[in-house]
Every structure is written in C-alpha cells, then in structure tokens.
Design a protein around this nucleic acid. Structure first.
Lengths: 197, 197
DNA sequence: CCTACCGATCGGTAGG
DNA sequence: CCTACCGATCGGTAGG
C-alpha cells in the first residue's frame, strides 16, 4: 500500500476500516488516527465521509467492469465459446478481489450506505455486471455446452460464492490467488457443464 | 410476524432494521419508532442494544444448528450416504434462511458488531457448522461419490452461495422457497458429483 | 494540517 | 411505558 497521494492513502485506510468494521461503525477520526493526523485535517483532502466511500465503491466497480470487459473480449473465444468466456470472467473476478480485498469487500457490502443517485447507480452497474454472468450461462445452455438450469439463480449463486472470498482469503494464506481462481473456475464449470465434458 | 411478546416484537423489528441498514446504522430510537413507543421505553424490555443483536444472532445460530442436526441424522442415509446427507443439509440451510430472512441476514453479516466472548462464540459455532459441510464433502470424496476437490474451499463456496440468498430472495418473488432449495441442491450436487451420476 | 468549536444524535439512566 | 436528562461521540466548519 504505497502512498501515491494523500487522497489515495485516505481511501486505502478507509477501505481497510470500512471492510473490517463497516462504514457506519467507522468514524472520520478512526481514519485520521491511522494516518497520524487530526480528524478535521481529513477535510483538507475530502469533502465528506460519504465521498470517500463513493470513491472506493466507484473505483472498485470500474475495476470489475474493466476486467470483465477484457476477459470476455480477449482471446480466440470472443463471442463464440460461452464456457471459456465464463471461465475467463470468473478468473478475472477473482483477480480483482484478491488484488484489493478491502475495496472489494466495501463494494460488495457497503453500497447500502450510499444515498440517492449514487446508490441507484451502483445497483444498476451491479445488475449489468451480473447480467454478463447470466448471459454467458444462457449462451452455454443454448449451445448445449451447459446443462439446463435457472440462469438467473445460477449467476447469483456463482457471484455470491465469489463475493464471499474477501471473508476468508488472505494474501499470505494457504492458497495463493491463482490457485483460488483455478478452484473457482473448476467448481463453476463442474456445476454447469453437461455430459459433454 | 405475530407479536408473541413485546420482547420478541422488538427482536423482529430489530432484525428487519439491522438487516436492511446494518447494526451500527440503526439507532435504538429507530427500533422504538416502528413499535410506536419512545426510545427509552425499550429499556423496560432489553438491557442494551447489543443484547438485542445477541438474541437475534444466538437464536439464528441455534436454528441453523438444530435444522442441520435433524437433516443429517434423519432418514435412511444416516451416516452412510454423504451425497444424500449433504443434499438434506443444503435444503435445511435454505429453509432456515427463507423462514426468517432478516434474522439470517443479521446472523451472516452483523456478528462483527458483537464484542469479546459473544463474538468468539459465534465464530466458533460458525466454524463448527461449516465443518459439517466440509466433512460431508470429504466423506463423499472418500466413497467416490464426489469428484476430488479442495473440500474446505468447496464448503466455503457452497455456504457463501447459500448465504447470499437473503440478498435477493423475497417470499412473494418469482421462486418459492421450496424451488430455491431444489435449485441449490441441484447446483451443489452437479458441482460435486463425479462421473457416477 | 492544526486548534477550537458547532449542532445533532448516540446509547443509556433516573424517577416516576 | 413516559418525560427529562446525561456524557460521549458524531460529521463537519471557521479561521488560521
């Protein structure tokens, strides 16, 4: 966590605290204390506590979207192999989480604390993101690669399982990030692939 | 949500509010307002805000444990058919969630707000509960019913997927609780069963 | 980035 | 179950 800018350092500290204790249970002074400054001094860099949350959530959402776009568009399977595309999407999702567990946890759990348009915007982007999973599952069923299933429930189940990762993954834990991704790709493929495998 | 006792009504209202906004973001006065009483009047029935949270979490944990015990111990598959036992365990877990979505969500997400022994106790019970899933997965691998996999990661993935249910399930939604359970049993079995299926 | 300070709200108590 | 009230803490501002 190198300090590129003071603003960014604030967001990184806030990510850790928000993910560990929740947005509402974290005070502005808690964040300041970690940075060894006084509470009010934070406001030289940010305009409100909610702005910090928004910055974290917006950046995390963008990272998920960018990674998904790259994963699905890349390679020989562009638009023609749903199973390979879904595997790449799962792998990209795991990587975004393991690259910044705190931010991912905040994105997944703390969007409720946002108000009005920001909250609605995040929900919309989350729906669009989930639709990528659902569409690939449906495409795989259509080609006969995947067994018949409720695509909406399956997509939600897969994303819930993936989004549980911040709850147990540790960078210095038993499984390195790449192995975690391998396992999830395996589990998802087993869950969906038909007798063709 | 019938009012059996005032104390229970308080816990039911608190479950709704805690699950919707989080423990820290819910004030004692918020709970009182829904019950049409004054904030301090709550303390005629409870000793602290955290006691209310604890009551909700403890009861939910007990419901999960009791349902799991009954599911695994019952029927002809007692201790001899890991796949059938795991299916029953998944079904029981879904039922506990759909029977009281608010309490389940609080159990899954708000235990962080507990302090000291209570927090440690819940974590211990959660671990023991997860071990039921892991042990059955390992037993199924040992008998050859399930394909080889990382049992710990698989158990966590399954539970994360199930615990995502409060995030989208609605009692008056597209899928009734029984169908949700059917689908999750199917997905979990597909994920784990080997070529023997 | 600091000190001094603001109004609002928090969980909870006293005393009926 | 109520009114009146408590000390603590909250997010944030003023003015340097």
């Amino acid at each position: 966590m190198v300090e590129l800018s003071r603003r960014r350092a604030i967001e990184d500290v806030a990510s850790e605290l928000f993910s560990a204790h929740g947005y509402a249970a974290t005070s502005v002074r808690d964040i300041a204390r970690v940075l060894d400054i006084q509470g009010p001094s934070l406001y030289a860099h940010v305009t409100s506590k909610e702005d910090v949350l928004w910055a974290i959530v917006d950046r995390a959402a963008t990272r998920f979207e960018t990674a998904a776009e790259a994963a699905v568009a890349s390679g020989a399977h562009a638009g023609q192999d749903p199973a390979a595309a879904l595997a790449a999407l799962v792998r990209a999702h795991v990587r975004v989480i393991t690259d910044d567990v705190g931010a991912a946890a905040v994105f997944v759990h703390e969007w409720r604390a946002l108000a009005g348009e920001r909250r609605a915007g995040v929900l919309g982007r989350r729906d669009a993101y989930e639709r990528r999973f659902r569409d690939l599952i449906e495409a795989g069923i259509a080609t006969g690669d995947f067994e018949m299933t409720d695509s909406s429930l399956a997509a939600t189940a897969v994303l819930s399982a993936l989004n549980g990762i911040p709850g147990w993954y540790r960078a210095d834990g038993r499984l390195p990030a790449n192995r975690v991704a391998d396992h999830f790709v395996d589990l998802v493929m087993r869950m969906l692939l038909g007798a063709s495998r």
